[in-house]
């Protein structure tokens, strides 16, 4: 019997996340000839809207409607999912902050294999799924074989599989709420309180046309000056990768990435930034990207338009001087 494929749909306030259609492509890449079921949890009208939208792209949509899922807590949801999912299914979940919360524990409770952060699939043979992963922040790739004979939970990296907008299905919406809730809910040992919004900083980098972005390669807080000098010469703003914020050298509002800001400048300079997917995930609108990195193999060079292999501590001041000269 062919295994069933499920895709967990992330949505917020009735709006479906980009990953929802990426997972259609990801599921097709698995190479299993089976219809794909979207799993959508939430509550009320918003949930209905999302289910209807998904029915155009998925052959079947499983809906779990529960007031306790108005804000989805992975611990609460997991218990319900375990009751309705077959133990030998293949469950695709986006590898982002919610997926990372839900997926590892779900695999344990389903007794399924766990394959985290897949970036590609190369087919199934004898009950093994061959997949591609990255290690060492994308410096090397690996092929892995995942035993899917007892099911698998697979998290899929966002932004890798191209969203499939070609489907024009009239998928069936199946209400799984009563099956999921038949045995009630265990008292949650983790309880959602509230969302605290990120602080707004002095500069709004989401509006900047020119961003001079600095990463761990700057090495020391004292060196930050050369970045500000360059940004001033170019007429741009300074942004950064996560380690610079972790070190408290810049405020969080200047961090670009999935756990920071989403920016859409015309020109983006990546200085001493390796190019982790969580960083690149915050850069939208296809800017002209220039990367300066002392490691010629840094993954950032795969995403940049122009690369310079150099030490930023030497290169940046020289670039600044030249620009200032040009401007007279």
């Amino acid at each position: 019997m062919t295994q069933r494929i499920f895709a967990y749909i992330i949505h917020k306030k009735g709006v479906v996340d980009d990953t929802a259609l990426e997972m259609v492509s990801a599921a097709q890449r698995l190479g299993i000839d089976a219809p794909i079921t979207a799993v959508v949890a939430g509550s009320g009208d918003e949930l209905g809207t999302v289910c209807n939208a998904m029915a155009a792209s998925y052959a079947e949509v499983w809906k779990i409607d529960d007031d306790a899922l108005a804000y989805i807590n992975a611990e609460v949801l997991r218990e319900l999912l375990v009751r309705i999912l077959p133990t030998d299914g293949i469950v695709l979940i986006p590898h982002e902050h919610f997926g990372m919360d839900l997926a590892p524990g779900l695999s344990v409770k389903l007794g399924a294999a766990y394959l985290p952060d897949a970036v590609d699939f190369e087919g199934i043979e004898d009950g093994y799924l061959k997949a591609v992963r990255e290690e060492y922040s994308g410096q090397v790739n690996t092929h892995v074989l995942c035993d899917i004979s007892q099911g698998a939970v697979v998290t899929v990296r966002p932004g890798i599989f191209k969203a499939d907008e070609s489907q024009a299905l009239q998928g069936q919406i199946v209400d799984k709420s009563s099956e999921a809730l038949e045995e009630g809910r265990t008292d949650a040992r983790r309880r959602y309180i509230e969302i605290v919004e990120a602080e707004v900083g002095d500069v709004d980098i989401t509006k900047s046309e020119i961003l001079v972005s600095v990463g761990r390669g700057i090495e020391d807080e004292d060196n930050m000056e050369i970045i500000f000098d360059l940004a001033e010469a170019m007429g741009g703003d300074v942004s950064c990768s996560r380690p610079v914020v972790d070190a408290k050298w810049l405020e969080k509002s200047r961090q670009v990435g999935t756990s920071g800001q989403t920016v859409k400048p015309k020109v983006y300079l990546a200085l001493g930034i390796s190019g982790a997917f969580q960083h690149l995930g915050g850069i939208k609108g296809s800017p002209f990207i220039v990367a300066v990195n002392k490691n010629s193999k840094a993954p950032i060079f795969q995403s940049a338009d122009i690369g310079v292999v150099a030490d930023i501590l030497d290169f940046v001041p020289e670039l600044t001087d030249r620009i200032n000269e040009m401007k007279g």
Partner: peptide, 23 residues
């Protein structure tokens, strides 16, 4: 259940144009 088969360097797509020459 999950076994690493090998390590490899991803084939570079288009990639950046690397500027060469003196600084």
């Amino acid at each position: 259940k999950v076994k690493r088969l090998d390590y490899f360097v991803p084939e570079l797509g288009e990639g950046a144009e690397i500027l060469e020459g003196s600084t």
